[in-house]
Design a protein around this nucleic acid. Structure first.
Lengths: 223, 223
DNA sequence: TAACAATAAAATAACGATATTATTAAACGT
DNA sequence: ACGTTTAATAATATCGTTATTTTATTGTTA
């Protein structure tokens, strides 16, 4: 569910989709804290909808590992920990590396065009509101690996990306973050990708994740 | 959702869980064909339950990629294709290899005990009913990687395993299958694992998958 | 500690609105 | 005038709402 739903986030047809996206947003942004109970009754009124869409949305979020279901005891926001953050970081490095290499191997003209556009749009959004930048940032990272021709792997990466966003938000919007030299790192990755320099792109992407990760891990207030 | 629910399959408390497991079983076994519509009304009577549990179960199966949801057009069993089978095969090799290596690296005494038992139970079940063997077979493969200390990765592997089971059932219960020399392959993998021979275990596991995969791909009746 | 009361989750049922699919009838061109 | 296409209608099913019941957990009090 985490995959390819962003495009319809605005025009979400079904109430279930709207509830799912709104709730996910609230959890990823930290608006609802880890461990907090998610009572269907409360959510019903918050999102002005019935019980069925809420319960379905919660079910979907359970599969995204953003919500935990304790049998007969309702739903709660998934717990977060430094260990999990490191697990996610690690898996992202491994899985995206795999996806990136495959993607570069199978790269097409259309893929390159998609990447160029995604990179351009992200570049123009560094100073945009966090939420808007986030969208473009994700689009760029997904574009990199989008030629790997493995929908399942892409879905896993998408899911991991979302989980990671949550931790990034836990670390707070410390000013320096986006400024550091993320932009330059992105540029180098982008360049290596269009050059089809697989090994260099791989290294750059992994180091990009590890640098950001180590930077974030110190800011995490959770255990 | 695909993960760690087997242990409660018998004593499934909630109706939702029961419906989920029953439906998943029906899909994995091929009892319900790919593309077939899943009408809530029909399922309600089939599984003797209400609409809410059925819809929640379908939502969960959507996240497992076993069911597709088309907006306003209800649910259908996920499509299957030779391409997807190969994708799953590939991903399984890559992800389980990663998990296996990590698992062997972090192997503990408890892990070894778990593995020994799982292998023993599987060995005694080669001639048991398919469903029973399947349970032990999965337990063995999961035990191999269970020390990797990455719940998310384990969940991915679990999901892929399930998806793969579906294709194995598509190929039909051709007699020769379990007999081939799967048993011997399992034994060798097992031995390499307890010996902590990472490279050998990796190679054996991958070749185990590829051999079985190539064997199955010819039997697949689908495109 | 045990029994009881309060709370909330899980499930059922009945209903209404909306969208899709199937059927039928009319219009059109060859 | 016939067959094909198009349009309108009817039937079906999904989606969502609301209300109610059952059941399990939690909190309180003797």
């Amino acid at each position: 569910m985490a995959a390819n739903d962003e495009d319809i986030s605005r025009t979400a047809q079904s109430t279930t989709q709207r509830a799912y996206l709104a709730l996910r947003d609230a959890i990823l942004s930290g608006e609802i804290a880890p461990g907090e109970r998610l009572k269907v009754e409360t959510l019903k009124s918050t999102y002005a909808t019935g019980a069925s869409p809420v319960r379905e949305a919660l079910s979907l979020l359970t599969s995204d590992q953003l919500v935990e279901r304790r049998d007969q005891r309702g739903f709660r926001v998934a717990q977060a920990s430094k260990e999990q953050f490191e697990e996610i970081l690690n898996l992202r490095c491994k899985l995206e590396d795999l996806a990136l290499q495959t993607s570069l191997m199978k790269a097409t003209k259309e893929w390159e065009d998609r990447l160029v556009l995604a990179h351009h749009h992200m570049s123009r959004a560094y100073n945009a509101p966090a939420k808007e930048f986030e969208e473009h940032h994700k689009a760029f990272h997904m574009a990199l690996i989008s030629a790997c021709e493995s929908p399942i792997l892409l879905r896993f990466c998408d899911q991991l990306y979302s989980l990671n966003v949550r931790y990034r938000n836990f670390a707070g919007k410390s000013k320096g973050y986006a400024k550091r030299d993320v932009a330059e790192e992105h540029n180098e990755i982008f360049q290596a990708a269009v050059d089809r320099d697989t090994t260099r792109a791989s290294e750059l992407l992994a180091s990009h994740y590890r640098i950001t990760g180590n930077y974030l891990v110190d800011l995490l207030t959770i255990s």
